[in-house]
Amino acid sequence: MPGAPTRVAYAYDRLRAYPPEVAGRIATAMGHAVAGRGEEPVLLELGVGTGRIALPLIARGYRYIALDLDPAMLEVFQRKAAGVMRKVRFLLADAREIPLPEASVHAVIAVHLWHLLPDWQRALAEALRVLKPGGVLLEGWDQLASGPECRLQERWRELLAEEGVLVERGLHRRRLSEVGEALRRLGLRPRTREVVAWREERTPREALEALSERLYSFTKGVPEEAHRRAMGRLGAWAEREFGDLDRPFPVEKRFFLRSTRLS
């Protein structure tokens, strides 16, 4: 049986993955951003996780440096990338101290990363340090329309508040704004566009599992006992609210890409 960190990594891989056609659209957009530079591009992803962004790019032939601080995430990714290992270099390292020389990669990819780092400025400085002149910083994020999954998350937050545990939401969006402002202060010109919109199906049971396994950043700081009690009450609430926990509901999502090219 896998240990708890590896179990969580597999849950993340299953519940946070992109549908193949969506992953392909994201890879195409990123590939266009690094095309036409006259040499074989090298891509570095910070916080690569289990490879949901990386694998479609690796499959297209890009040389890839996959960095993550979580060995369980890298372990799952390595197993998935076994057939294309010659194109991948794995780095168990901190995005705030990238073990690469200056001006060594053509693109740095950061998807859902900045809000996980209190001192994100160090990671941003490191990302810009390792980029070649003319290289590009690619930041990506999802936007989820409100719906049953959001209602579950909000109810979880309310149950914790009843125990005196306050959960901060919205940090991801604020952090993206802060990073954008920092890039503009450096004289750079970040450009954002929507890459793809899609609909998935999710069951209440899957949404509960994602919360239970703490797959979202806003769950990380909650004390374990409070989280366990809230999940027990949330499960009972979900059964009353939704009835069949295995009946799927639609989830509307969009993926955005912000590109910032060095001069």
Rank of each mutant, 00 (worst) to 15 (best):
L144Y: 09
Q153V: 00
L137F: 14
P118S: 07
R129V: 03
V167M: 12
R122Y: 03
R184I: 08
S146C: 04
L113G: 10
R189W: 02
R189C: 05
W114C: 00
A161V: 03
L144N: 03
A197G: 09
R193S: 01
A161P: 05
R157K: 10
L159D: 05
G134N: 09
W141Q: 06
G147D: 06
L116P: 01
V136Y: 01
H106L: 04
H115S: 14
L137E: 02
G187D: 05
V196E: 15
E213A: 15
R129T: 03
V130R: 01
E163F: 00
A125D: 14
A207H: 05
E163V: 02
L137K: 05
Q121D: 11
A197P: 02
V179C: 06
G147C: 04
I109C: 03
L186N: 08
V165M: 12
P118H: 06
E194S: 00
L211S: 08
D119I: 08
C150I: 10
C150V: 09
R151S: 13
E200N: 12
G147K: 10
L131G: 06
S104L: 04
F218S: 11
L144A: 12
V222E: 07
L186C: 10
Q121K: 15
L183T: 08
R151F: 02
G221S: 13
E200C: 09
A197R: 15
E162A: 15
E149W: 09
L124R: 09
A145S: 14
H106I: 00
G170S: 10
V167I: 13
I109K: 01
W141F: 11
Y216D: 07
E206W: 08
R184A: 11
V136T: 14
E139R: 12
G140I: 01
K220A: 11
E168Y: 04
L144C: 05
P133Q: 05
R169S: 13
E139W: 00
Q121R: 15
L116G: 01
H115L: 08
W120Y: 15
G164I: 03
A207Y: 04
K220V: 10
S177F: 10
R199S: 07
A125H: 14
V105F: 02
V130M: 08
Y216E: 13
H112T: 08
L171M: 07
S104R: 09
S177H: 09
L144T: 13
S146L: 12
K132A: 12
P133V: 13
W120N: 02
R214K: 15
H115V: 13
A210Y: 00
R189Q: 09
L188E: 02
A127N: 04
R184H: 05
A182L: 05
E181N: 11
H112N: 14
A161M: 06
L208A: 11
L160S: 05
T219S: 15
A161T: 07
T203F: 10
P204R: 00
A107V: 03
V222R: 04
R173N: 05
R157D: 00
V167W: 02
D119K: 01
Q121F: 04
P118E: 07
W114N: 02
L186R: 15
T219C: 15
E181C: 06
V105L: 06
